[in-house]
């Protein structure tokens, strides 16, 4: 995810100090990976250099006496970014996929692996469902996002489980070049 663009988006709502901006970001998007102050100030520096935001010094002392505000160019940039679709990344080369193909090639227990993965996925889905029940709006949206993606994995896991017999046969034929 683009940290500078996200910070720019937050500044499109209201001007902010670097510290508040970081807190706002962490609450909405940080999940278990909060931004470092280094990242925040590096991003703000870049945005200022590109003319997308302006800083204003405020009276008083301490490091956080600068308030940042979006410029017209910055406003345009956010509008453009929000209007663009993201790359539909098919996540094809996940470890999950690689493990199943290898298990089939090596004639290991692919079904056992898939069952275990299914259980692990569902356990995580239970946690996310619980987060939805107890968490705030940003957590709800994030948990939903996770749930739908895990569900997609699960459907693939179920389908692959159902296809294992045929798949193993196909892999064997491809490897030995003959019907078993």
């Amino acid at each position: 995810m683009s940290v500078p663009l996200t910070l720019l988006g937050l500044l499109d709502r209201a001007p902010s100090h670097g510290y508040d901006l970081k807190r706002h970001y962490d609450t909405l998007f940080g999940n278990d990976k909060p931004l470092s102050f280094g990242q925040v100030y590096a991003s703000l520096g870049r945005l200022t250099r590109d003319g997308l935001i302006e800083s204003r010094a405020e009276p008083g002392d301490g490091p956080d006496r600068k308030s940042y505000a979006i410029t017209d160019a910055g406003h345009g940039q956010v509008a453009e970014w929000l209007g663009e679709p993201v790359e539909p990344a098919p996540h094809l080369q996940t470890v999950l996929f690689v493990k199943v193909v290898l298990a089939l090639l090596l004639d290991r227990d692919a079904a056992g692996y898939l069952d275990l993965q299914r259980r692990t996925h569902l356990a995580r889905m239970r946690e996310l469902t619980e987060i939805k029940r107890t968490g705030g709006p940003a957590e709800l949206l994030l948990a939903d996002y996770g749930l739908f993606h895990l569900e997609a994995d699960l459907r693939w896991i179920d389908l692959t489980t159902a296809r294992l017999g045929t798949l193993a046969e196909t892999v064997r034929i491809a490897e030995t070049g003959k019907n078993a």
Partner: peptide
Amino acid sequence: ARVASYADREIMVRDGKALTVG
């Protein structure tokens, strides 16, 4: 699976046999 994730645990049924997990 999203509905199942409301439950405390799941039971998988395959070929007429129930596999208790979770």
